[in-house]
């Protein structure tokens, strides 16, 4: 290529990011070199530290710097409930919603036989051990409302069937502030099947 080997290497390396092609990678590289040297150095340092320092939490499988992630270190969150999510971004969304005060287990995926992802890949045995060891009383299945998410939720629920654990699943339905007329039939169907008595 037309640039020095160092610049070429930088452009090529940036392309490993999702959604970054040749052009975008060039733009990023030139920006860092022309106007953002400080930011670039910080990025390089952060990348290096994160790549060697970030691991999976021994307890919940989420990304962590130490053996346990901050949530698993927090004793007040070991209250007997465990929320099962597919990804760290799902965990983040629940944390930001702020309603939930228990622990988590991050599957880092979902069951998908066609992709070759089975129970081992998402850490089901580790989850079952944790349920036993920590005397978990409620499992909240917060997998995505997709066919694979359903399959994952059912698998985990069935594996817990013989244990004294309450297994619940997040409701799926109509978004707050939404209008029925604009909700797709699939979501409406779920909402309908999951209807609840107006008790109090």
């Amino acid at each position: 290529m037309a640039f020095s080997p160092l610049v070429d290497e930088l452009v090529e390396s940036l392309r490993c990011l999702p959604g970054v092609g040749q052009k975008t990678a060039q733009r990023m590289a030139f920006h860092l070199l022309e106007r953002g040297r400080q930011g670039g150095e910080r990025l390089a340092g952060a990348l290096e530290q994160a790549m060697s320092g970030v691991r999976r939490c021994d307890s919940c499988q989420n990304f962590a710097d130490t053996e346990l992630c901050p949530i698993c270190q927090d004793d007040s969150r070991r209250n007997g409930t465990l929320c099962i999510v597919e990804s760290p971004s799902d965990l983040l969304a629940l944390e930001q919603a702020g309603d939930y005060q228990g622990g988590y287990f991050v599957l880092m995926g979902h069951l998908s036989p066609i992709d070759g992802i089975g129970p081992e890949e998402i850490g089901v045995e580790r989850l079952l051990r944790r349920v036993q060891d920590e005397n978990v009383t409620e499992i909240i299945l917060a997998t995505n409302p997709t066919v694979e998410g359903d399959a994952t939720a059912h698998y985990i629920a069935d594996r817990l069937a013989d244990r004294p654990v309450l297994v619940t699943r997040l409701a799926h339905g109509i978004p707050v502030g939404g209008e029925l007329g604009y909700v797709d039939g699939f979501t409406l169907g779920h909402a309908f099947r999951g209807r609840k008595p107006l008790a109090d």
């Binding site: 070759g116 089975g118 129970p119």
Partner: peptide
């Protein structure tokens, strides 16, 4: 070539209680 859904079925049946 492997058939993963068959393995999933076997693992589910082996792991879940047989009362299903």
């Amino acid at each position: 070539r492997p058939l993963h859904s068959r393995n999933l079925f076997t693992s589910w049946r082996g792991g879940a209680n047989d009362a299903q």
